[in-house]
Design a protein around this nucleic acid. Structure first.
Lengths: 157, 157
DNA sequence: AATATAAAAGTCAAAGAAAGACTAAACACG
DNA sequence: CGTGTTTAGTCTTTCTTTGACTTTTATATT
């Protein structure tokens, strides 16, 4: 066996492979099962189940809390993940953002109403912050939106 | 259903869904049915059936007491306009924002996908700005989004 | 009618349960 | 070495559950 994180990664993946495209797990229970610190689970999730690896993670705290790992098997996964990485990046202007949103419509990933929603929330008008941070904020919002669209069907964060 | 409160919430909602827009229930009876402390019912009502979430709760103590849960009517064209004016205002927390978005879903103004989109774009996570301006920015974005939806027209499908 | 009793529901605070964030140490590897 | 990855530990935050105590109301008793 390689390192512990790989073992945990494999364990989670084996759970997902059994038909479903998403599983729910208990952080403490899992940590106990592998005799490690609970935060190790977070580490594995962050490094092995990130968006560009094709996964989304949702969770909930408190009594009855859980961590849900979702395998993204959308056809557009690569397309959108690629978009996030290469076209959006750390900052983006309103002009560029609108262009990308337009492409999403053409590609059939979003409809007209969703286009409206997205455009309105990343418009210069809505983002009433200093110019220096506006493009950074817009990029962050767009990334978050696209990620949310990818795991649509799950619960909430 | 993972946790007791969710189960109770579902139970109450299923009662309401059966046609009526309001139901009456007995706190102790309900608590006994779910084998929990009576005050747990209050907790569920407070967290799941708040005004923000589109419900009103009335009650009466003493012999023959009751708890009445009323689903607030939301049809009417200026529902959203009213929301913008009275419930969002100049600033809004993530918690309040999510509640309102949930209400939009229940009222049939937006669908699950649009909910995801809206929630993601006003999440604390997406709005990476100093805490002082975060709630103001969130309110601005929400207002812009809702306005955009109004212009687009109600028919999502 | 006045009072006592019992039957509700309300409030609040404490305890418990779970995940998140952050930090620091240990390890691997060029 | 030095740098990046892994592991562990601790503290914080969020959400749930319970219990003790209070307040209100209807009903029975005197």
């Amino acid at each position: 066996m390689s390192v512990l994180s790989d073992t945990i990664e494999g364990f989670i993946k084996s759970l997902i492979m059994e038909g479903q495209k998403e599983i729910e797990l208990q952080r403490n229970e899992l940590a106990h099962h592998f005799s490690c610190a609970p935060s190790q689970i977070n580490y594995v999730l962050a490094t092995r189940f990130s968006l560009d690896k094709g996964y989304a993670v949702q969770s909930r705290r408190g009594g009855g809390g859980y961590i849900r790992v979702i395998r993204l098997e959308t056809d557009g996964e690569d397309f959108i993940a690629g978009l996030i990485r290469s076209r959006i990046g750390e900052r983006i202007t309103q002009h560029e953002a609108y262009a990308i949103i337009g492409r999403l419509v053409e590609a059939g990933f979003i409809n007209e109403r969703e286009k409206c929603l997205m455009k309105s929330s990343v418009s210069d008008n809505a983002l009433s912050v200093p110019a220096v941070v506006k493009d950074v904020l817009r990029a962050k919002i767009m990334r978050t939106q696209l990620t949310a669209l990818l795991c649509e069907g799950g619960g909430h964060e």
